[in-house]
């Protein structure tokens, strides 16, 4: 299957929505509102229960999508972190090219920003998706994780205290 006429989207854009149905990592209100926005737009799109599940199966449809993006179609994906989404396509032997792929992060962005990226191609929404919440906060959180681990006493496990 190829081409965009099949789904009725504008000729050069293909939209893919991930429901992340097996985990709660994408806030329910965000993924619900994004789906409502896409469904209410009057445009065709594709939706998958769980892109992770699809990648684990090396679903050949991922290769179709990746090929379309390489042939000039803009592929817009509403899912989670762009690094993870690219890794999933790579795992499925269908790596995404740099050009023609716009990934919107429903883990961090509000629904209206995701929809601005999906429906209007807002480039700032795409950039925000990859950048994360707040670099300073991320650094602090990472430092906290490492410090917490370092504070664990280098002792024998409890079971040895007999």
């Amino acid at each position: 299957m190829s081409g965009n006429d099949a789904t009725g989207t504008e000729p050069t854009v293909r939209m893919l929505y991930c429901r992340c149905a097996f985990a709660q990592v994408v806030p329910a209100d965000v993924k619900g509102a994004v789906l409502e926005g896409l469904a209410g737009s009057g445009r065709g799109f594709e939706a998958v229960a769980d892109l992770c599940d699809m990648a684990a199966r090396r679903d050949p449809h991922l290769a179709d999508l990746s090929a379309l993006a390489k042939e000039g179609t803009t592929l817009r994906i509403a899912a989670c972190w762009p690094r993870a989404v690219r890794g999933l396509f790579h795992l499925a032997d269908s790596p995404l090219g740099e050009a023609g792929v716009e990934i919107l992060n429903m883990r961090t962005l509000p629904a209206e920003r995701v929809l601005a990226g999906m429906l209007s191609g807002d480039p700032t929404a795409v950039a925000e998706s990859a950048a994360g919440r707040d670099d300073a906060a991320a650094e602090q959180a990472a430092a906290g994780r490492i410090a917490a681990l370092g504070q664990l006493p280098p002792t024998t496990p409890e079971g040895e205290k007999r």
Binding site: T7, G44, V48
Partner: peptide, 11 residues
Amino acid sequence: LDRGYSVTLAH
């Protein structure tokens, strides 16, 4: 989707 299906909305 919550049932596990993939869905294509075709016009």
